[in-house]
Design a protein around this nucleic acid. Structure first.
Lengths: 156, 156
DNA sequence: TTATAATAATAGTCAAAGTTAGTCAAACAA
DNA sequence: TTGTTTGACTAACTTTGACTATTATTATAA
């Protein structure tokens, strides 16, 4: 349970604040100063320990008044079905197979009727319409994976 | 959700007035004085936060008695705005601008919170993640257009 | 009085400078 | 090997001010 490195310490610090509030906003440089590390270390911590799979949503803004916002989200009780689908999608998927996945999501109440239509609109052939079919299937897979991943969140 | 910079503060001020009236008229120099900034800062705020894709119409007049008028547009009662948005998207759009559109659709109840998140997941940079930025903006535009079109038929 | 010119009073544009956060790969450590 | 640390470089957003454009008002000339 002891902290072995600075990343673990920062992770624990952020999670201790998140225990109080459901959402926090930090200034990257301030936290880096606080823990005497380079700013990009904060990115490393977030990328490795505050993923959506772990139940965190991260947003940020650059420039004056910039920030990094970390929000804790509730995950659906049974993520296995999503994991299987993401694996099935892999890095390439046809329109037909993607439609089947969307249908399954709808039947399992992970998507409403309208949501299913919107997702379908995003990935259908007539939308992507790339002359390179391989590339089209690849992009469709990226979109499907991202959406499946997002469905881990109970709310949102 | 604090204000982090003067632009955010001015944005919030203007939106708080707009919450009362559907349309407001301001004097650029007065608002600049009020918030102790240069007048062109007001232009920056308007240009980045009160565009049509943000759901606002802006008119102005120079010279004596000049003004800047900001009006809120109602997407639901004005379906033409969807067409204008599709036209605005064109065949290429950045992540930032697409996010603004999604935000506007959400604020006007054309998308639920979850639907907005799903659409965002489909078009965000980390999803499309193409080395070719031009192609990425092009595909994002195709998806956004398809989604906007789908929203024309209110219920599915 | 009327037309025109000058002046004042606005708002717009643009680019430089400033302030953040993100990426990526090399070096390092367990 | 795998995971961590570091820093140079990049990208995004904000602030500022000099310069420009437009409109209204006032002064001047015919």
């Amino acid at each position: 349970m002891q902290n072995r490195n600075i990343s673990d310490i920062i992770e624990q610090y952020l999670k201790s604040i998140l225990a109080e509030a459901s959402q926090i906003e930090i200034k990257r440089s301030e936290v880096a100063d606080q823990f005497d590390c380079v700013p990009s270390q904060i990115n490393y911590v977030i990328k490795t320990r505050f993923t959506l799979q772990n139940g965190y949503l991260v947003e940020s803004k650059r420039g004056g008044g910039g920030y990094i916002r970390i929000a804790k989200v509730d995950l659906i009780s049974d993520p296995d079905i999503l994991d299987e689908m993401i694996e099935y999608v892999g890095d390439s998927i046809s329109e037909t197979k993607a439609f089947q996945i969307i249908q399954t999501l709808y039947e399992n109440d992970l998507l409403t009727h309208k949501e299913a239509h919107l997702v379908a609109a995003a990935i259908e052939r007539s939308t992507l319409a790339l002359s390179d079919n391989k590339l089209e299937d690849l992009i469709r897979a990226k979109i499907m994976s991202s959406i499946l991943n997002r469905l881990r969140c109970a709310d949102q």
